[in-house]
Amino acid sequence: MTVRFRKYSWQLAPQELKTIRQTVFIDEQNVPPELEWDDTDEIADHFLAVLADNTPVATARMFNTLDDTAHIGRMAVLPEHRGSGIGEELLRHLMVQAAGQVRNIHLSAQEHAVAFYQRSSFHVCTEPYDDAGIPHYGMRCLAPTLATRHFVDDSVRPWPLILGADDKSWLIDSEHQVPELMDSLVGQARQRVWLYDRMLDHDLYDRQSFRDLLSWLARHHRNSEVRLLIHDDTPLVKRRHRVVELARRLPSAISLRLINEDYPPTEQPFLLVDRQGVLFRHQFDRPEGFAGFADSGRVKLVAENFQRMWDTARPSLELRELPL
């Protein structure tokens, strides 16, 4: 089915766009009109999906915020056109529009639609909440560039970037892929994040988004465990680091140790997330490697190696003595 997409400001949006929202949200789902029509309409871009004969069939809106985030909302497909793939095409069109402009994409998903959004690389990031009497979950895609590339290069991947479900490896061949994959993994952690590298490179790890993801894990999951294992803490002593400061504020959940060089360590840095996720680089100073979101066998082997290195490692006395 051929579908085209048109973008409008709210002031120039055709009546058909508003009629679709009226039909789906107000008439079908009983959303109160005063909740459906809000001030966000004035600042958002509005998208209308039309068939080859110009029949309007679906709509959505999207706006960006200053924290480098795109927000998708008010996605609606007319009842007679559901199940034909129009909703997925519309969602992916919005993601392509946002990719390259923002670092992540957020949306609020009705409970029954969670799996629909997961098929396009969104993962759940909140507890369930009520919106207009309908159960919702917050969802996000933290790797929009990779996700949209996948739409073209690997359309058969069923659960892209979903921890425990995406069983295909993501090959890493450039630096910009590493933080996207790292954040996508850590953003879905519910128990542990184990990290091993030569140092906590500021460009890679001293990012506000990475710090916030670790903080959320440590604060919202009682038995969570973040372990940071490195060779050299000198750069951390000389220059402030967001993750190190977070670790010093949450010592019961986040620990940092220095490798014991008397016990031969591995020469490949890695990140482990829960029992399924792994990001593995072949060399300390190069980005090449791979990430897996459902690779429990490899995670188990790498975790055993990490545990051996961790058991012989020591705390950083220099960092402990620095003022907060």
Rank of each mutant, 00 (worst) to 15 (best):
S108T: 12
S108N: 14
S108G: 13
A109R: 01
A109C: 01
Q110R: 09
Q110G: 02
E111I: 14
E111P: 05
H112L: 01
A113S: 03
A113W: 08
A113L: 15
V114I: 12
V114F: 04
A115F: 09
A115M: 12
F116H: 05
Q118S: 14
Q118K: 05
R119V: 10
S120A: 08
S121P: 02
F122D: 09
F122W: 11
H123N: 14
H123Y: 06
V124T: 12
C125G: 07
C125I: 13
C125W: 10
T126P: 05
E127Y: 15
P128Q: 12
Y129L: 01
Y129N: 00
D130W: 09
D131K: 04
D131F: 03
A132N: 08
A132K: 00
A132G: 07
G133T: 03
G133N: 00
G133M: 08
I134R: 13
P135F: 03
H136E: 02
H136F: 04
Y137N: 05
R140S: 07
R140I: 13
R140F: 11
C141E: 00
C141D: 06
L142T: 13
L142E: 06
A143E: 10
A143H: 14
A143N: 04
P144W: 03
T145S: 15
T145P: 15
L146H: 11
L146Y: 05
R149W: 11
R149Q: 12
H150I: 15
F151T: 11
F151Q: 04
F151D: 14
F151P: 13
V152S: 13
V152M: 11
V152H: 08
D153M: 15
D153S: 15
D153R: 13
D154Y: 03
D154H: 14
S155R: 14
V156Q: 06
V156C: 12
R157T: 06
P158F: 02
W159K: 06
W159E: 06
P160T: 04
P160I: 04
P160S: 10
L161M: 12
L161Q: 09
L163H: 00
L163Q: 03
L163C: 01
L163M: 00
G164E: 10
G164V: 07
A165I: 14
D166G: 05
D166L: 01
K168W: 11
K168T: 15
S169E: 14
W170C: 12
L171G: 02
L171Q: 10
D173A: 12
D173Y: 14
S174I: 06
S174E: 04
S174D: 12
S174C: 11
S174N: 13
